[in-house]
Design a binder for these strands. Structure first.
Lengths: 242, 242
DNA sequence: GGGGAGAGATGCCGC
DNA sequence: GCGGCATTTCTCCCC
């Protein structure tokens, strides 16, 4: 069983294949790309996702999404992986000039990742600690699709003023302010009232964004998001002592 | 030379390592995550980027960025890859329970990808075909950092009206309208004039975005971006006949 | 290095 | 499926 056979088998089963190869890549779909010959790692997953990785960088240089159809072709021109995603109208050709290694195996992986510390956790935290937002803020709803759009946190100040809160886990930029502005304006328009406060909550803010917030009468409140949420009491972390 | 030695070597050189292993992963940094035991592909690149891939899906389930420091540890508790990115304050631990294979090699890859069909190409195309925007549009500058921000396309209508064009390669959503709105307002504020037109150009637009555009007096123009730009006359594509 | 915007963004959850 | 938005977004470009 040679390399070609191994690749063929991997493409036709739900195995995962890892190929080290000197190859050239062409892609056509949402954009078009060409990549001249070089040594790369090719990953073909069980769900037929395909990734081409160069020796440097975080992201794949080329890729095809899951459910792509891969065909291994070997003729006088050489070896190729021809990938077609007819539904998305995306196509890729990998010309394999030299195969360094091929590894195929079935990966048993029943678990999915548990992640915490996202923006939802931040708005939950703010909801539990409304004093961080100040001015007598009373939370009403969080992360909900209101009639006015998707609002992170929504409440009032106990003084007949509605309060719309937009929160960002990291430094807020102009986009955060315009988002907040959209919500506030939508509510103003539908309620026909002026007593609506907009509050932007984030650990930091860019100069421009702060200026924009002030121009629009919004409050910026600097709040550090919780380092991590402890979801179980017995949360013994082995990674803790760096 | 066993698996442990091979991994150790790969982590200490500018080789690229591909490891198939049953492992558990913990991450702490911008967020926190835990991933219980399962079979995965681990990629450690020449620049010390590290990726953990499950058998399905496009994106890595866990990762560390380039320039991370990796340490291979083997003791009574088992084998671990301890990754530390002190600068970014990101940390990862991979507990290796069973190693299926290890492949290390030096990847020679001098080329970078050539890609076309991005938004810049779209605005270039519109600049060459101003009639697509209509109303006697005369382009002046494109994709430039003006005093008012980064404007895709900027011009006038031959009738003393400035025209600001925001273009999107795909369906435009609310964000596109708010972006356009920011630029138009900035220019209005600094020039103190009202004769400024805002035009949103995209192949499609969402209902909400169209409503927003109309509310703000902007024009939406449906234009299909060019399938691809031919940058060289002799552009023989071998991928052509899918 | 920070800021701003695109990306072949991807993925998630809502309707 | 579309729509709206977060993402351990990533990457690039410009100041």
């Amino acid at each position: 069983m040679d390399d070609a056979d191994r690749i063929r088998e991997a493409l036709n089963t739900s195995q995962t294949a890892v190929i080290g190869a000197r190859c050239a890549v062409e892609y056509s779909g949402r954009a078009e790309s060409k990549l001249a010959t070089g040594d790369r790692i090719i990953l073909v997953k069980a769900d037929n996702a395909l990734l081409v990785h160069q020796p440097n960088g975080n992201t794949p240089v080329n890729y095809m999404k899951p459910q792509t159809v891969h065909e291994f072709v070997q003729d006088e021109a050489g070896m190729r992986i021809k990938s077609r995603d007819a539904k998305r109208k995306e196509y890729m050709d990998i010309l394999l000039e030299k195969i360094h290694f091929v590894n195929c195996l079935t990966l048993e992986d029943p678990h999915s990742i548990q992640l915490q510390g996202n923006e939802k956790d931040f708005s939950d935290y703010l909801s539990l600690h409304p004093e961080l937002i100040g001015d007598g803020f009373v939370p009403v709803s969080r992360e909900e699709q209101t009639a006015y759009g998707f609002v992170d946190l929504f409440g009032h100040d106990g003084d007949n003023n509605l309060v719309v809160v937009e929160c960002k886990r990291f430094k807020a930029g102009p986009d955060a302010v315009t988002q907040l502005r959209r919500y506030v304006e939508k509510i103003k328009a539908s309620k026909g009232v002026d007593g609506i406060k907009g509050v932007l909550v984030a650990p930091a803010i860019t100069k421009n964004a702060l200026q924009m917030a002030e121009d629009w009468g919004f409050t910026y409140k600097s709040v550090e998001p919780p380092r991590f949420l402890v979801k179980s009491k017995k949360d013994q972390r082995s990674i803790g002592d760096f």
